[in-house]
Amino acid sequence: MLLRPCVILRRLLSVLIGAVILLPADHAAAADTAFSVDRERAREILETIDDLWRSTSSAARLRMVVTTAQYTRTLIMEGWTKGKEKSLIKIISPLKERGTVSLKDGNTMYTYLPKTDRVIRLTSGMMMGSWMGSHFTNDDLVKESRLADDYEPALTFEGPRGGEEVIEFELLPKADAPVVWGRIDMVVRAADLLPLSARYYDEDMVLARTLDFQDIREMGGRLLPARLRMVPADKPAESTEMTYLEIEFDIDVPDSLFSLMQLRRM
C-alpha cells in the first residue's frame, strides 16, 4: 500500500517486446524438429526466445486498459527499446498524465514527472509497487528477464488443445536464481512458437497470476500477439490489458534518446 510510484518497467517492456518478437515466422521451422519430450530441446527453444528478444530495437504505440474494483483507466503510450538494456515509455493520454516518462538504462530506472518537472530514481523500496496503476509491478519490468538464465525448462505437453497444436513448458527457477516465482507454466503455439499464456505460481505452487497473449496477427512485418492480458489470481474480476496499436522493428533509435537529459526535453 505504501509505495506505489510509477517507474519504467523493464519486464513489462520485455514481455511486450518479447511477445512481439517471440517468434517471427521464419523461426517457426524450429518447432518442426522431432517431438521428444526433451529437456535439451526445451532449453534450445527457450534460448532462441531469449536471443530473439534481446537483439532488436523497436518503436511502438500502445494502449493499456486497467480494470479494478475501483476504477477503469485507459492510457495511450509510446515506447522505444534498444537492445536489452535500454527502454523508454511515455504517456500520451490522458491529458493529466501526458508526458510522464519511464526510463530504464542498464540497471537503473527513472521516472520523469512533468507536473513537478522532476526525475525520480527508482529505489528498492518501490520495486513492488504497481506500475501506472496497473497489475504489473515495477519489479516485473526491472528484473532480468532472460528466462534461460533463471529457469530450467521442461516440456510437459505437446499436442492439440482447444483446436490448436501447442507446446507446454514448465519453467522451474534454478536453485540460485533471484526470482520470486516457484514455477511458470508457459504455453506456446506449436506452429510458430508464439506464446499463448503464462501462469505464475508461488513457491507453494499456488497460482498468483495469469498472463494471456491474444489476438495474434501481423504487425510491423512480424506475426505477434497484439494483446496481453494480466489477471491476478486473487482478484479474477480485475485485469490489465495491453494492446499494440502500431509497432515498428529494427529502426534507428539513437542512444541519446535514453538519457536523463532527454527525459526533461520529451
Partner: peptide
C-alpha cells in the same frame, strides 16, 4: 534496508 519478496 531492502525489499524482501516471495511470490506476489
Amino acid at each position: 534496508q531492502g525489499m524482501f519478496a516471495a511470490g506476489a
